[in-house]
Each structure stands twice: as structure tokens, then as C-alpha cells.
Amino acid sequence: MSALLEFREVSVVYGGVTAVDKVSMSAEAGQIHGLIGPNGAGKSTLFNVASGLVQPRQGTVLLEGADITAMGSYKRARLRMARTFQQLELFGVLSVYDNVLTAAEIRRSWARDHSDSKADALQALERTGLAEMAQERSDRLPTGLARLLEVARALATRPKVLLLDEPAAGLNEQETRTLGKLLIGLADDGLAIVLVEHDMDLVMQICSVVTVLNLGKVLLTAAPDDVRKDQAVLSAYLGSAEVNV
């Protein structure tokens, strides 16, 4: 499989602090790539680099082989990269439906096709299980559902690459299981998904490959089983105990 999204030796420096230090990783079509690490490891910064919200000090970001390092955020989205945010970025005054509809309409305007935005929006809501609360105002949703709404909004742009920043935070066990199934389904559809998540059970169950970041550096990129057993990972991130899957 070919890498849809690729980071090559990416470094980000905030003032005197190196938040991301020569990180290389890639996400392939049909694959869920877990990105884990303790708080401050540089996970969200890497997402911000991918989406153009932060410029790296060095290194390149490639999307389907094309260098997008200096490209504006909106252009990256038009190359079919979508993301969710760790701190919610919903259109709070709009309803759940209008949040997703707006995304579908924006996509239709730049894609210049004649797709049915309403159908796209409804489909995204159905897929994320939010159809029943379509008329709710989005800023009144519980955090967990609000995160799902961000996923639905991203899906309405029909992405190839999906960056998810802690989508399971605030979800209960049942909702987390549903989210896991949804993400597996999306990967089966050919999406490349990068998942930042603190729920280790979810990461270990649905990711085909996991990259562990610590203090801005890649500690390990491997299959979940290998990550679980790696002593460096256990001591740096998970403490001394083994991951409970």
C-alpha cells in the first residue's frame, strides 16, 4: 500500500522548546495509524503541522507524494484531508445538522460538483449515529457526542486522509465500541486514518500500526502487539505496568 500522508524529519520549535524533533511517519490508505504518547509528546502539534496550522522549522509533509509543507490549510482540505480537534471547534450556534450540512456545502462549492449536500450531511450523521439529534444545537451536546459531530463534519467533506485528535474522550464504553467499529469501517472504505487517543484499549484494538512519541521524538513505530511489549514504551509512557487489553 502507498502512503497517503507522510511526515519526513519534521521538527517544530516553540520559542526555545523543541515540541517535535525530526519525526518521520506515514499513514497508508485503508489503515488506522495510532499516534500515542504522554501529554506534551507533540501529537497535536504534529496534527497542526499536517493541517497547516503550524509551520515546521524543518522537514516536509507529503500528501499523495506531493509536498504540502507550505500549503495553506484550506488547500490541504481540498486535497481531501480532514481533521478533528482536541479542543472542540464546533460551530456552536448552528444545529448538529447545520454543522454537517455547512461542511458538505463548503465541499460542494470547492469540488464544483452537483452532489446533494443534504444527502451527504444526512449520510454522515447516520454513519456516526447522530441522526436522532440532528436538530439539537451543537453547543448543547455532551462532550463525547460533540466529538462524534466533529467526525461527522469531517466525513461530510469526503476525505481520503482523516486526522482524529482524541475522538473517544468523553465517550462511554458502548459509544467507544461504536466509534471503533465506525473507524474500522472507514478504513475498510480506503481512508487513511491517523488516530491520537489516550484510550489504549481502543488504540490497541483497531490500529494496524502505532507510533509512540515521547518528548517530541519517535520512540517506536510498530504493530500494537510489539508496542505493548516494548520496554522503552512501557517505561516512558505507560509506566512499568503492561498494557491491559
Partner: peptide, 16 residues
């Protein structure tokens, strides 16, 4: 309204 609420999210939907 979406732009007012979250310019970053709008940009990530492809809005210029």
C-alpha cells in the same frame, strides 16, 4: 456563522 465560530475548522473544511 461558521467562520465566526471557528475559522480554523472552516479552513480545514476547505473554505478560503
Amino acid at each position: 456563522l461558521a467562520m465566526r465560530e471557528s475559522p480554523a475548522a472552516c479552513a480545514m473544511l476547505g473554505l478560503r
